[in-house]
Amino acid sequence: MSRLHFTFPCAGETLAGTLDSGREASGLLIVSDGNEVRSGAFSGQAHLAERIAAQGFPVFRYDRRGVGDSSGANRGFEKSADDIRAAIDAFRGIAPKVSRVVAFGNGDAASALMLAGGAGCDALVLSNPWTIEETAQQQDALPPPDASRARYLSKLTNPAELRRLATGGVDLGKLARGLVRAARPVAAPGGLAQRMATGLSAFDGPTAILLATADSTAQVFESGWDAEDPRIRRCERASHAYVEPHARDWLEAQLLEMLRA
């Protein structure tokens, strides 16, 4: 395995990419979450690429326009379809043996792939898709009612928490606000979630939707999605970035399963 850094064009700008080479015809395209650079937080995506490439699968990562080493203006994930398509073309160009591209996106990277209808990829691994509207982000970043109900039910059945309540160790105002939110009905999916569902419906390739059950982004997504969707796979006690050892191994297994399919 070797690692190559290079640049490629996108809509008149220059994007930076990294290829971890592999012998297999299926390759993994990693789309970064948020405004993260292609190495990921604390080099998490670079380490993931190294592990997947060690199994023989080439891995391509890139910085979209206006992020990291790439030129241009950062237009956000909702307008990044051209960046994804340019990355796919560059991946196929620099690794001509790759005949099948599996795209992996976590958070709003998953949302970007859904909005773009797969953007020309052959298979999708969509993790913890971001469905929170910008107007909602400007309010308190609170978990959905389902998550709040589960949290407070756990607290109210925990003897230690009940002792804290009885001895004044609980902020009663905060508790009251949390219980009010837990009592609210689940909100209907917003416009972003609907557009993501529409985009994904246009994609007919293999798709896996991965949800880290301890992640609030995943909880918000699931509260407005069909819980019986057969494409959903859940990793218990996992956080958004799958940093827990069991979650990291689980994520890697999901990606390898899709690459080998």
Rank of each mutant, 00 (worst) to 15 (best):
M1V: 08
M1A: 08
R3H: 07
R3K: 13
L4H: 06
L4D: 05
A11S: 04
L15W: 09
G17F: 04
G17E: 06
L19P: 02
G22N: 06
E24F: 07
L28G: 08
I30G: 03
E36T: 03
V37I: 07
V37F: 06
R38V: 12
A41H: 12
A41R: 14
G44N: 14
R51H: 04
R51E: 05
R51I: 06
R51W: 00
I52F: 01
A53F: 02
G56C: 06
P58H: 03
D63P: 13
D63L: 07
R64E: 07
V67M: 03
G68V: 15
D69Q: 13
S71N: 11
S71I: 09
S71P: 13
N74I: 04
E78P: 10
D82C: 02
I84L: 07
I88A: 01
D89M: 04
G93A: 06
G93L: 00
K97T: 14
K97A: 14
K97Q: 15
S99C: 02
V102F: 03
A103E: 13
A109E: 14
A109Q: 10
A109N: 13
M114Y: 00
A116P: 05
G117D: 06
G118L: 02
D122R: 12
N128W: 02
T131S: 05
E134A: 03
E134S: 02
A141V: 07
P143W: 00
D146F: 08
D146P: 09
A147T: 13
S148W: 14
A150W: 15
R151I: 05
L153Y: 12
S154Y: 08
A160K: 11
E161Y: 13
L162F: 04
L162Q: 09
R163E: 15
R163I: 15
L165H: 14
G168M: 00
D171A: 00
L172P: 05
L172T: 11
G173K: 11
K174V: 14
A187N: 10
A187I: 10
A188I: 05
A188V: 12
G190W: 04
L192D: 02
L192E: 01
A197P: 01
L200Y: 04
S201I: 05
S201L: 01
A202W: 06
A202T: 14
G205Y: 03
I209F: 00
L210I: 13
A212E: 12
D215R: 11
S216R: 13
V220L: 03
E222H: 07
D226P: 02
D226E: 05
A227C: 04
A227D: 03
D229F: 00
I232A: 00
E236I: 05
A238D: 13
S239G: 15
S239R: 15
H240S: 03
H246T: 12
H246Q: 07
A247F: 11
A247S: 12
R248T: 14
W250K: 09
L251D: 08
E252F: 02
A253L: 00
A253Y: 01
L256S: 07
E257Q: 12
M258S: 14
